[in-house]
Design a protein around this nucleic acid. Sequence first.
RNA 1: GGUCCGGUAGUUCAGUUUGGUUAGAAUACAUGCCUGUCACGCAUGGGGUCGCGAGUUCAAGUCUCGUCCGGACCGCCA
Length: 582
Amino acid sequence: MYRTHNCGELRINKLGTEVTLSGWVQKVRKLGGMTFIDLRDRYGITQLVFNDETDAALSEKAQKTGREFVVKINGTVTERSNKNPEIPTGDIEIIVKKMEVLSKSEIPPFTIEENTDGGEEIRLKYRYLDLRRPVVQKGIILRHKMAQEIRNFLSNKEFLEIETPFLIKSTPEGARDFVVPSRMSDGKFYALPQSPQVFKQLLMIGGYDKYFQLTKCFRDEDFRADRQPEFTQIDCEMSFVEREDILTTFEEMTKHLFNKVMNVDFPNAFPRIEYDKAMENYGSDKPDIRFEMKIHDISKLSQNKGFKVFDDAEYVGAICAEGLATYSRKQTDKLIDFVKRPQIGAKGLVYVKYNEDGTFKSSVDKFYSPEDLKTWAEALSAKPGDLILVMSGEKSKTLTALGELRLEMGERLNLRDKNKFAPLWIIDFPLFEKDEETGQFHAMHHPFTSPKPGEFNLLETNPEAVKANAYDLVINGNEIGGGSIRIHNTEMQEKMFEHLGFTKEGAEEQFGFLMKAFKYGAPPHGGIAFGLDRWVALFNGSDSIRDVMAFPKNNAGRDLMIDAPAEIDEQQLTDLHLKIVK
RNA sequence: GGUCCGGUAGUUCAGUUUGGUUAGAAUACAUGCCUGUCACGCAUGGGGUCGCGAGUUCAAGUCUCGUCCGGACCGCCA
C-alpha cells in the first residue's frame, strides 16, 4: 500500500497513529543531526522528521533525497514542539521509521512552490512540473468544479448533453478554419468546428429541445492572453423559446455558479443594456460596470466657442475621474501619451481640473471661460477635486477611445476590484456590421441570427438599422457568453444569406443541408454559448486563460512542451495527397 | 500583415545609455559545519557559445543589419 492518508489531511487528533504517506519531496532542511522534509501532494504538505540519534542510516538516506523525488514513508504522527500556523498540518509531523524512494528526479528547472522562480516560457515547456504547484492546481480544480455545477444545473433542467462531430466542413463565414486533409478523398479536407452552431440547430430540428455540451472549438486566428486556438464552450440551445426564456434560464445558471463556486449572491436581476446605450455610455459593447464614470456627450456645450478642434468634430465626449484634479502636468501628459498610443489612436486629450477651491484649470482656458467649463462639470456631475477628460472626433472612434481611457482611469483609481463582480446583459445588437474596406455586410453575431421581432421589414429598406435578437453576458468587462434567437425558416435564412453577399448557389453549397432541414418542421429555437476558459479565469482572478488550461499553447499557437505543430514525414504527406510548397 | 518590449549562470535579473582589466547579484546546485527548521543559518566551491549569423572597429554582451525564439497589443477572432 502506498498511502493511508494524503499529505494535507493529518491533524493533531491523529497523534500516535501509524501512517503511510507518498508524495513529492518539496524541500529538505538539514540541521546537523536532524533533517526535515516537506512532503507534498495535491492535498497539502506534511513535515517529516529524521533524527541521527534514532536511526543514523535512515537520516543519512533522508539527507540524500533531492527535490521532487517521489517517496513513500511509514511513521508516527507526533505533535510538533515548534508549530507552524501557516499550514493546516502545521501542528503535527511524522517521525519516520521507514522510507522508500519510489522515483528519483533530476534537478527541476524551476522551483515548484507557491511562488516559483520560473518564467512563462520555461513553465510552459515543463507544464507537468508547473501543474504540481498549488496555484496552478487551484485553477484546474476550480475549472472542474464549474464544469460539474454547469452539468448539475442543466441536467436538473432536463437539458441533454449531446456530442457533435469535430471533423466537419469548412464554411466561409467567420473565423479561419483549422483544416484536416482527408486520406480517403483525394484533395478534400475536413474542417474543425469553430463552434457546434449548425449541429445544435439540427438537434433542435431533431427534437432534442434542450441541449448542451462542454466542447472544444477551434479558430485559426491570432491569439491573445484570452484567446487560444482551441478553447472550450458551454454550448446550449433550446426550442420553443423567446429571448426572455433564454435570458431567464441562463441568468439563473450564472447565479447558480456564482453561488456554488464563489459564494456570491445576486438578489436582483442582471441589468440589461442596449448595445447603442453601452457604446454611448461606456464606449464598449462589454462594459465594466463595477464602476460608473459614464461617458457624457458635451458636443453642444463645447462647440462654437472658437476651439477649432472641437468645432470640426462630429462628437465631443468626456469622463470624470474623481479626485484627480491634483494630477501634475507630468501625469496629464502621461494620459495624453496613453490615448495617443497606436492601439487607441486618438489625436489628443483635453483635461479640465475642477480644483478644490471651485476654480478651473484646463488645457483649453484660451477658448473657454470658467462659466463654460462649469457647464461641462455640471453635465458630468463633477465635484471640486475631480479631473474631467475630454476627447473629440468621429463619434464611434471617440467613444471607443474614451472607453479605453475610462478603463485606464478605473484601474488607476482602483475601481476594478477582482473580488467584486458586475454581470449584465447586452441586448439589441445590430444584425449587420459593414466592412469598412469592401462595404460588404457581415453578420455581427452569426448568419443564423434572427432579426428582432417587428424589424423584418427594415431588412429591405435599411439593413444597417436592423437590430438582432441577440444578447451577450458580460462580467467585469469580459464577454463571457453570447447567443441569439435563430432563424427557423428557409425564406428568412435565404434572405439573410443574400444580404451577406452569398449567391443562391453558394448558399446552397455551403448550407444546403440546413436550408433543407428547415423545410421539415423546424421549431422556433435559440441558444447561447459561454467561454468556459474565460469564465474560469475570471473566477480565478487570472488575467490569462492559460492559467486555467492544463496544457495551453503559447501566443503563436505552439505547444512548447510537445513542440507542436511539427513536420510530418514524406509517407504521411503522400497518403494525404499533399505536397509542401516552399 | 503591423507596432512595442525582451533573449546574459539551471532559474530570475543587473551590466548595453558612453565599446576597453578576469561579465556580476540573488536563488538553485555540490561539499563541510550546525538537533527544532519551515524563505533555516554560516562557510567554501563549481556553473556562461552574453539566442544565432554577418558587419563596423585595434577592441563588441554593449554599435549596425539580418535572422530565430518568447511576451503584450493592433488588424483578425461571425
